[in-house]
Structure formats: structure tokens, C-alpha cells
Design a protein around this nucleic acid. Structure first.
Lengths: 192, 192
DNA sequence: TTTTATTGATTGAACGTTCATTCAGTCATT
DNA sequence: AATGACTGAATGAACGTTCAATCAATAAAA
């Protein structure tokens, strides 16, 4: 028997798969229910409406990313190594969870992503900001705005994972080039 | 009196405005028609269906970007200067045409953006690839895959314009930092 | 010149479908 | 017996799309 929390997760996972495949508008609640093996009505005991479901998924995804990346961070290392770990963790996470990557990509630029949501506390954004702030404090990277730095790095990882995904065949022999991008960014932000 | 092409443009512009504001699914054809001051049926003489309209908009946007950026490129300049011009043109274009920027951002990650569309010839992608290829041939930038390079640069410009747009107030004093990103990327790809 | 015919764009009410959401009834557990 | 999660047919609103009718412009005929 599933606990309530597990059922909630099950609905979220079902919605994630559908949304990555079809987008928000082509992922009816009825289908989400069918995939999750629950009745339509059940979804409405866990979420007020479809918008709340989508925002709930966003919060879930953001938390999962934070857990994955922060667990693999080791503040005792050299910041350069921490940076490469950060990059690799985030890349790995997206490649291990393509539905979360697809969802995040869509959500960020969607009208669901309102100012209100962006101004709410966000464990992942906070972690990323603090991460880069510590690099600045240690004098290892340029003193740019940590918000800017984190968005920059995160959106580059995002793009690269998307490229890897889209051009799986065409670029197979050039996959290494994509990993070079992390050096390229590091060279750009490091303090010599 | 408007010509047929002008009416087509009018429908596209009306849809662009709505989609940037509300997204694809919250931009009904009826509203697009109302904004464009035509009847619903008229839209269907210019586009087979809503999907064709959206793809038509994409092709229009992509062409406008190519025209704007290529007009401001001067192959006789040093490649470094050409790079900064490219960066500035693209940034300017998005800032002058926020609805196109919003649309493009949404479209790229949407299910409308099928493999079929990506494999069709695309004047803008072709221009960007040739641009970076010429930099490589001149030995001014690293010999990375030009497709990778163009996607990388374009998605960075995209992110930065989005940051500027979202954080207009909070980052006003840090706007300069965002322009530094172009140096950061140039330092990363240039050959010393 | 005036009248009639033809063409093709334009209109918007109407249609059928799909969707989010509800709720009266069922089931499982306590 | 009581509680509360679960069910899924039913509902109504919203949407994409159609099409018979209208209109404007041009060509042909008188």
C-alpha cells in the first residue's frame, strides 16, 4: 500500500513524463490520472487545480536538483574542483532525469512561472547563489553578481544537456567538445 | 488598404504579442483574430491550423533575426570585433522585439519544435554556423563544432536578455556585469 | 456608360470536441 | 458506525475549426 506522500509523488512523476513528451497544454489531467493509475478526482485531493499541480511539480523538481547537487558538493575541496563537481552533478542529474529537465526547461519560460513564484524562497537558487558567493569570497572567481553567475552557469548546463539530447546521433563523435564548454566557462569566470 | 502579405504579418504580430503574454495554450485563435482586427475565419485562409500558424511565426522570427544580425555584420573587420557586433546585434534585436524573444524562448523548448522543423533549412542557423566557421578558419577561435558554438553563444545571449528583462529593477546598478558576460565568453573561445 | 457575372477574400454564428473540475456514491480502515 | 480517501460519469466552459453567406473588386457583356 502506498502512503499519501508516495501517491503524490506518483501523480507528479506521471505528469512529468507526459509534460516532457507533450507539453503543458497537451497533458490533460485525465491522462495524468490514467498514467498514475488513479481516478481523475483523486488528483484534486492532492492539488487544488491544474496550475497548482504544475507549480507543485516545479517545487518538487527544484528540491530534487538541490538535494542531488548539494550532496555531491564538498566545501573542503579547492573551489575549482567544486565548480567542476557542480557542473558534473547538474549535468548528471538532468541526464538521469530527462523528464525533469524537459519540464524545467518548459516551465522557466512559461506564464506559470510568475513573478510571485520567482520571489518565493527557492532552496536550489539559494544554494547556487551561496555556492558562487563562497567562490568569490575565496577570491577564486570574479566578483560578479552571484545571481547572474548562477543563472549563467545553470542555463549553460541546461543548453548543453538539451544539445546532447537533441543531437544524440549527429554529434556522437563530438560529445567531448560539449564537455569542454565547462572549461571554457571556468576560464571565463576564474581569477588568475 | 493592406496587402495580403501585410495582413499575414498583422496576424503574426497579433499572435506574437498574445503568446509572449499568455503562452501558446492561453492564446486562442479567437483572441488572435480580435487583436489583428480580422474574423476568426480569415486566419484559416492564411494558415491551415493553429500549429501551422505557430510554425509560421517561428519561421518569420528566425528570418527577422537573421536579417537584423547579418545586416550589421562586416566580414572585413577583425573577427573579435565581428564577434562583439554579433553579440550586440542579437541582444539589441531581442530587446527591441521582446515579443519575438519571448516567443522564441517558448517555442524552442516546446513540442511544436519537432525534429522535422529542426532539420528543415534555417537561414538563421546557417548564418550563425557560417559565422563561427569563418572565425575558426581565420584561426581566431578554437576549432569547436560550429553548431555547438552557435547554440552556446545564442543561448547565452538569450539568457542574458531574459535576466535583464526579469530583473529590470533589482539589477539596475549591475547591468554592466551582464555585458561583461560577452568578454567572458570571448575569452573562453578565442585562440591566444 | 451601365449592367451583369465572376472571383476570391472576409465574416462570424454554429458545431463538435476536449478539457478542467465537481460531487454523489463507493470502498477501506479504524 | 464513522471517517476520509477514492472513484468516474456528468457538467459546463472554452477551444479549434468549418462553411454558408456577404462583400468588394474586377472583368465581361449589353
Amino acid at each position: 500500500m502506498h502512503s499519501l506522500l508516495e501517491k503524490r509523488k506518483c501523480i507528479i512523476q506521471s505528469a512529468l513524463d507526459l509534460i516532457q513528451e507533450n507539453g503543458f497544454h497537451a497533458s490533460p489531467v485525465s491522462q495524468v490520472a490514467k498514467n498514475a493509475r488513479v481516478a481523475v478526482g483523486t488528483i484534486y485531493t492532492y492539488f487544488d487545480n491544474k496550475e497548482a499541480l504544475i507549480i507543485g511539480i516545479y517545487e518538487y523538481v527544484v528540491e530534487e536538483i538541490k538535494i542531488y547537487v548539494s550532496e555531491r558538493d564538498d566545501p573542503s575541496l579547492l573551489f575549482k574542483d567544486r565548480f567542476y563537481n557542480y557542473w558534473k552533478s547538474l549535468t548528471d542529474f538532468y541526464e538521469l532525469n530527462p523528464s525533469m529537465h524537459g519540464f524545467y526547461d518548459q516551465f522557466i519560460k512559461s506564464p506559470f512561472n510568475s513573478d510571485e513564484i520567482q520571489s518565493k524562497p527557492n532552496v536550489w537558487h539559494d544554494f547556487a547563489c551561496e555556492f558562487f558567493e563562497s567562490g568569490i569570497k575565496q577570491g577564486k572567481i570574479k566578483a560578479l553578481n552571484p545571481i547572474v553567475l548562477s543563472i549563467l552557469v545553470n542555463s549553460n548546463v541546461n543548453s548543453i544537456v538539451r544539445i546532447k539530447h537533441n543531437f544524440k546521433k549527429k554529434l556522437s563523435q563530438n560529445k567531448m567538445e560539449l564537455d569542454e564548454i565547462s572549461h571554457l566557462i571556468w576560464d571565463g569566470i576564474k581569477v588568475d
